[in-house]
Amino acid sequence: MSRHVRARKAKGASKVGERFEAVVGPVAHGGHCIVRLPEPEARVVFVRHAIPGERVVVEITEGTEGDRFWRGDAVEVLEASPDRVEPPCPHAGPDLCGGCDFQHVSLQRQRDLKAAVVREQLARLAKIDVPVAVEQVAGDEDGLRWRTRVQYAQGPRGQRAMRKHRSREAVPVDDCLIARHDAREVHPPGSTLDRTAATATSVVHERVTTRLDGSHGFAVEADGFWQVHPGAPRVLVETVLAFLQPQAGEKVMDLYSGVGLFARFLAEAVGQQGRVVAIEGDRLATGHARTNLADFPRTKIECGAVADVLASSYDEPFDLVVLDPPREGARRQVVEQIVDRAPRAVAYVACDPAALARDVGIFAEHGYTLERLRAFDLFPMTHHVECVALLTRVGAGTR
């Protein structure tokens, strides 16, 4: 199998292309399972396209004799799991499109595997053991047709394509099955696809429907951040509000606030006597947030890096915080500045369980405990999972 991975210094002879028969171990964070090869290899191999408990033939795709671990694909299944299914997409599998990790796994087992990863990360990094169940969210078709935006590469003949896993090599894809039929397409800037794309507009409008008060339109940049699962905005807003229980007159911070999805509903909940401060680093998103929250003049929208704004402004107590950082998480500097404002509760929206677990551990150092956790299957067929965690100050509780 051909691979074009980031250059690094070789540590001995390459093992790429060698095959080993092995029993698959537990799932690991990142869309693969762990295989432990016995002597004389004695290596951990992170294997894609496998299911725990299966007996497979593993082909090494990355690794040299001196590496601590290797990467590989399950290219032949000798003893299949009862949860193995035929991938619905012909482009899913070893050495094909790298977009989906779990098309070979039944939907319920996919969710169980994701739950196991979340629980393992919390146990290892935050030293807490909590039950985790990954919930289905309305808006997909048996795990397919849920992406409202799709970013394509350009194939060798100018056609739509996807990248292989950890590779720049493109695989032509005529129909991405996790994309909705009306999905907005994003293409490489300057490519033939980009120049001919009918969707190359600068601003689009999404709609989020909540159980609270009907529909609300949100202005979003065409290539800006917005949850790609159609059921995501509603379930995340409702979970955050249910966890925090914001009260009239309270002061709230919305960090990494994007175009103001959470801030808009928080502002409504705390009312005219309350206050919402939304902080976002992207200037275009901040501009859209001002439009989206025009009906809430008491909401302050700040453009700047969250850590920098918190270090220089709003050094006062806040009742509640919504924390929705990018994949790398909030990290210690931001967490400790949140703690310094002594909120009674923090709702942490996380797309990476390892970053969530690390930050939960930092909160714990400062007297905040993980009180509730929900996990949502907003990215079926992939290893990604979205979590919402409620952190409360010991002795404070929620109302």
Rank of each mutant, 00 (worst) to 15 (best):
A123H: 12
D83M: 11
F318K: 02
L255T: 04
H29G: 01
V360F: 00
P26L: 11
G367K: 02
E280D: 06
T369F: 08
R124W: 05
A115S: 14
D73C: 14
V35L: 05
E365A: 08
D140V: 09
G190F: 03
V208Q: 08
R8S: 14
D308S: 13
K300Y: 07
L107R: 15
Y256K: 00
R327Y: 00
A153R: 12
V394E: 15
E268G: 13
A375N: 04
R332Y: 03
R147A: 12
Y256T: 02
L390A: 05
T239Q: 02
A74R: 12
L125K: 06
G190D: 02
Q103N: 11
A311L: 09
K114W: 04
G274N: 05
E54G: 08
A10F: 08
A161C: 06
L391I: 07
A92K: 09
A74D: 08
V321P: 01
V322E: 09
V56R: 12
V306E: 02
D182S: 08
M381W: 12
R48T: 13
A13F: 04
T398N: 04
P380N: 07
D223M: 01
S257E: 01
P326F: 02
G274W: 04
L144F: 05
F20A: 10
R372E: 13
V322L: 11
A350T: 01
S313V: 07
R160C: 02
H229K: 01
A200D: 14
A123I: 08
T398V: 14
Q136N: 06
Y368P: 02
V306Q: 04
V394K: 06
I128P: 02
G274A: 10
V105H: 09
P131I: 06
V220T: 04
